[in-house]
Amino acid sequence: MEYGLLVMGAPYTSPAPHSALRFAHTLLAQGHHLSGVFFYHEGVHNASSLMAPPQDELNLHDAWIELHRAHNIPLDVCIAAALRRGLASEAEALRHGKASFNIDAPFELTGLGQLLTLQQRCDRFITFA
């Protein structure tokens, strides 16, 4: 089956990203397909390349990248929700006159239309918030 995930919980604030990652790995292990993960609301913070948790805690940013590398899962981040919260790619940082950026590939800034497309395309769509 085609699955899609919506992550709206912030890292280290909500257990939602951890639950979403466990669910993603489990469904993939069962032979299902994961069409994409969309990060919205506080979930956009999962995409920050500047997160640096202590060594005894999972680096969620890196955990998502690992999921992407192992299974080629698109990691889409709502651009409006990200910019509002101080998360920007190099291109967006330039556009807004900011000195630095914290969103890099494989995370992609995209519009909400992508969320709706993902939901419509998937057989199952699950929110983690």
Binding site: F23, T26, L27, R124, I126, T127
Partner: peptide, 19 residues
């Protein structure tokens, strides 16, 4: 368990999270 949770989602097209 997580495996069983995924299996439950297979049987239900509509899934709503209350948070």
């Amino acid at each position: 368990d997580m495996n069983g949770f995924v299996t439950l989602t297979e049987h239900h097209p509509q899934i709503v999270t209350w948070y």
